[in-house]
Each structure stands twice: as C-alpha cells, then as structure tokens.
Simulated assay, not measured.
Amino acid sequence: MPTVATAGFAAALISLGLVVIGAAAQVSAHQQARVAADLAAVAAAHAHARGENTCAVAGQVAGHNGAALSGCVVTGADVTITARIGRREVSSTAGPV
C-alpha cells in the first residue's frame, strides 16, 4: 500500500511542477513581448521623427527581439506598437519628449 501512496504523491508533485513551469513560460513570454514592444516603439518614434518608414523599423526591431509586429499606429508624433510572442500581445507607445 505505501507504494500506491508514494506513486500518487509523486504524480501530484509532477503535476504541480508542470503547472509552475507553464505559468513561468507565460510570464516569460509576456516580459519578452513587453521588451520587444517597448524597444520597437522607441525605434519607430525615432524613425518617424527622421521621416523614415516607421512601421518597417518597428517590425525589424520587434523581429530582432523574437517578436512579431501585430500592430503599428502613428498618431501625430506618437507611435503605438503591438508586439506578439506566442499568444501574448503587448502594446507600447513612444513619441517625442
């Protein structure tokens, strides 16, 4: 009987470990998407101020940071970028100070 209880306890610990690993992966993807969106927004705002192709620069910077560009909106001098990694999507806005 102790073997059955031990196996049940081990299965519970493994299940808990998998849940923790899954949650950590989601948090990591969110943080990576946040960084990619922030960097892409700053680069895009700089490109916009210089008269360059804003969304192309944003897409390039997002790609270099492991994200896909899923949105690029220019409103006046501000640029709002949405970056996606996996199922996590994060938006960031940048403009002149």
Rank of each mutant, 00 (worst) to 15 (best):
T3S: 14
A5E: 08
T6H: 08
A7D: 06
G8S: 14
G8N: 01
A10C: 15
A11Y: 05
A11E: 02
A11N: 03
A12F: 13
L13S: 14
I14T: 15
I14C: 13
I14R: 01
L16Y: 09
I21C: 06
I21G: 02
A23W: 10
A23R: 11
A23H: 10
A24G: 12
A25D: 04
Q26W: 10
V27E: 11
S28E: 12
A29C: 00
H30C: 00
H30L: 12
Q32W: 12
A33P: 12
R34G: 02
V35N: 10
V35M: 08
A36M: 10
A36T: 01
A37Y: 11
D38V: 09
D38F: 02
A40T: 07
A41M: 02
A43S: 14
A43Q: 00
A43M: 04
A43H: 04
A44M: 05
A44W: 07
A45S: 13
H46C: 01
H46Y: 06
H46E: 15
H46T: 13
A47Y: 08
A47C: 08
H48P: 02
A49V: 02
A49E: 10
A49D: 10
R50Y: 07
R50V: 04
G51A: 07
G51D: 09
N53L: 09
N53D: 14
N53R: 14
N53M: 05
T54E: 03
A56P: 01
A58L: 05
A58E: 03
A58I: 05
G59H: 08
G59Q: 09
G59F: 00
Q60T: 15
Q60G: 10
V61I: 15
A62Q: 04
H64Y: 10
N65H: 14
G66P: 01
G66K: 06
A67Q: 11
A68D: 14
L69K: 06
S70D: 12
S70N: 08
G71H: 07
C72M: 04
C72L: 05
V73E: 13
V74M: 02
V74D: 01
V74R: 11
T75I: 09
T75G: 10
G76L: 05
G76D: 06
G76V: 07
D78A: 14
D78M: 05
T82P: 03
T82R: 14
T82F: 06
R84P: 00
R84D: 11
R84E: 13
I85P: 03
I85W: 06
R87M: 02
E89R: 15
E89M: 10
S91D: 06
S92K: 07
S92I: 01
T93L: 07
A94P: 00
A94I: 04
G95N: 04
P96C: 05
V97G: 13
V97W: 12
V97M: 09
